[in-house]
Structures are given as C-alpha cells and as structure tokens.
Nucleic acid binder design. Structure first.
Length: 213
DNA sequence: AACTCGGGGCA
DNA sequence: TGCCCAGAGTT
C-alpha cells in the first residue's frame, strides 16, 4: 500500500522532471576528480554558485593535487574565506592533499570507504564524487533529500543511509541526477523544514505529510 | 543518536 | 542581532 503510493509519487516527479529546465540543477565546476573532490568539500553549508566563484580562481592557479599541496595554509584560507567554515575546510583540504599524495599515489580513490577516510569527506561528499567523477552508482542524500523524500512518501526511512538505498531502488538510474536536484530544490523552495509551503506544492495529493497537517 | 563545530544568510 | 542552516566529526 505504502509502496504503491511511493510509486505514484515517483511517477509524478519523473513527469515533472521532463518539464523542468536544466537551469534548476546547479553543478560544481571541475576539470578532474581531484577538483570535484575539493569543490565538494568546500560546498558544505554553502551554495554551489559561491563555491564555483572560489574554485574558478583557485584551480586556475593550483589545478592539481601537487600544486594545491604546495599552497600555504594561509594562502588557501584567503582563497576560500567566502565559503564559510573556512578554517576547518582549509585544514581539511591541506590534510586531504597530503593523504592523497602519501596514501593514494596522488589519485582520488574510487571507493566510498577510502574517500570517507579523507578529512572533510563524509558519506554525502563521497557519494557526490563517486557519482559525478567516476560514474559509479551512488545517491548523495543531504537533509533536504532525506526530509522531502520521506514527507512525500517516496521513501519511508529513519536514516539518510536508508533513504539512499530506497531512492536507488525506486528511482530509475537515468533519473538519479535530476531527481536528486529536484528534491533539493523542492526542499529549499517549497518543502522547507519548519514552514513547508504546501499551498505552493504540486504533489499534495499523495503526500503523507500534507494529508496529516 | 545526539551533540558540537563555525561560518554565512536572513528576519 | 539573534536564529537558522547542513554538512562533518565526535562521543
């Protein structure tokens, strides 16, 4: 019963994706897995647009792990100060560069476990790199995705890891990327954590949350 | 599982 | 100016 509802919601979303313009999807600009890794570390609690404005200059001058490793902590901090949490991120990025060189032959690892050993890389960031740098099936779940998918009844899960696997099961692989971006945008603009704007929502007919409030 | 971190954004 | 955000890391 719940599963049937999830399938209905899924089909509604996929229908919406066809009409959605690609401008809705913000992307982190990068030329290599390494650059995507650094950009994704920077993107925590920060919009992709601001990250891109930082990495545009940073990667122009220091495009590789070897080049970025040579950059002093102070200069790195100066580059990324507009990203928020810059002290932590600068330290993590420096440490990550050293680990890539020392432990991974200067390459970005291709497994989630290895990626998550890098400081500043959690499960969500690891999944972003796996999916977008290496095209390895992975579904990044942030709080927006987790909240919206559960409210809509697309999944029924306690943890974001459960949400991750349930979304991978119910959404066709070719829609993972745009569905991910749609869920994030819907979470930011409509299905907000505290004040969900259900009157602006197109999916209220099958929504568990809306029908309870 | 719940808490802390530490910046920016926004009312 | 105080509250909120959203990831990672810690206990």
């Amino acid at each position: 019963m719940l599963k049937d509802n999830a399938l209905l919601v899924r089909d509604q979303i996929i229908e919406l994706l066809a009409k959605t313009n690609s401008e809705l999807t913000t992307t982190l600009k990068h030329d290599s897995p390494f650059q995507l890794l650094i950009a994704t570390i920077l993107s925590a609690q920060c919009t992709d647009k601001r990250v891109n404005s930082i990495t545009e200059k940073l990667f122009a001058a220091h495009p590789t792990v070897e080049a970025l490793d040579q950059l002093s902590l102070e200069k790195l901090e100066a580059y990324i100060k507009s990203a928020g949490l810059w002290r932590i991120k600068a330290r993590n990025i420096k440490h990550t560069c050293r680990m890539l060189i020392n432990d991974f032959h200067g390459e970005v690892p291709k497994t989630r476990d290895e990626l998550m050993r890098l400081p500043g890389v959690g499960r969500k960031t690891a999944n972003v790199v796996l999916a977008n740098a290496f095209y390895i099936p992975a579904f990044p779940v942030d709080t927006h995705v987790h909240r919206v998918a559960n409210r809509l009844g697309l999944v029924n899960s306690k943890t974001s890891i459960q949400t991750e696997s349930q979304l991978m099961n119910i959404i066709p692989y070719n829609h993972w990327n745009d569905a991910h971006h749609w869920l994030i945008n819907h979470g930011r603009q409509v299905c907000q954590a505290r004040r969900p704007l259900c009157n602006k929502c197109i999916l209220t007919d099958h929504c568990q949350y809306n029908n309870q409030h």
